[in-house]
Amino acid sequence: MRADAKKNYENILEVASVVVAKHGADASLRDIARRAGVGLGTLYRHFPTREALLEALLRAGFDELTAKARELETASSPDDALVSWLRDVIACAGNYQGVVAAMMAAMEDTKSALHASCVTMRTAGTRLLTRAQAEGLARTDMDGDDLFSLAAALAWLGDQPSSAPRAEHLFSIIASAILTNRASSDFRAQPPL
């Protein structure tokens, strides 16, 4: 990529990060281009679809979550690893309003720009869940799809003004429902989501 094209790409992503965090996943692409000081054609050359732009914004976070899951597989107790990773997934999804719907749709759409990133992240979480299940620490009647759906639901609730103040409480309830040996009060000492 030429130096000026790379600069435009990085600038668009930087601006898009701010705009999407403020206005949500349906933020105006025209506004993003204008704020980045490029034409709409330049934005579309780098990101042919809204999903491609969202994927680029989320990829780094998803890659970090995948790497963290790998570290947690051996560095923590299985139940603590699962809860820590779940909390981070919710925080990552919560950085951008409205991105949860795009993530959930991408799981089913193999042609989506977000599909591969979402599948890789879900697979990493599934390994943590399976490890906790093998140790008898997590419910055995759920799978990685269930875990991903619960994380998405909690992230979505965090986006809702009426539910945001209860996000930590709701996380505690869900975490204690996933784990077989922990009460919801065990999770309240954690910092807010």
Rank of each mutant, 00 (worst) to 15 (best):
T49H: 03
A56V: 02
P161W: 09
F171D: 07
A60Q: 13
A132L: 04
S17E: 11
M107E: 13
L114C: 02
G41S: 10
R166A: 15
E55L: 00
R34M: 15
R30F: 13
A16L: 02
W85Q: 00
T74H: 15
T66R: 11
Q133W: 00
R139G: 07
I32R: 05
A67W: 14
A116N: 12
A175C: 02
A21V: 03
A132T: 06
E71S: 13
N11G: 12
T110W: 14
S17I: 09
M1V: 12
A67F: 14
E51C: 06
G24K: 05
T42G: 03
I12N: 07
G41Y: 05
M121L: 10
T180P: 08
R182L: 10
L170D: 01
A33I: 00
Q190W: 13
K6T: 15
V19M: 06
A93E: 09
S149R: 14
M103D: 04
T120P: 15
Y9K: 09
N181F: 11
M1A: 11
A189R: 14
F148P: 13
A3L: 15
G98L: 00
A56L: 01
A21Y: 08
M104F: 14
I90Y: 04
L29Q: 08
L40C: 15
D159K: 08
G24M: 03
N181L: 11
A67G: 13
H115A: 07
G136D: 09
P191I: 06
R127P: 13
C92D: 13
H169Q: 11
A91V: 02
R70F: 15
H115K: 07
V83G: 01
V100K: 06
L53T: 09
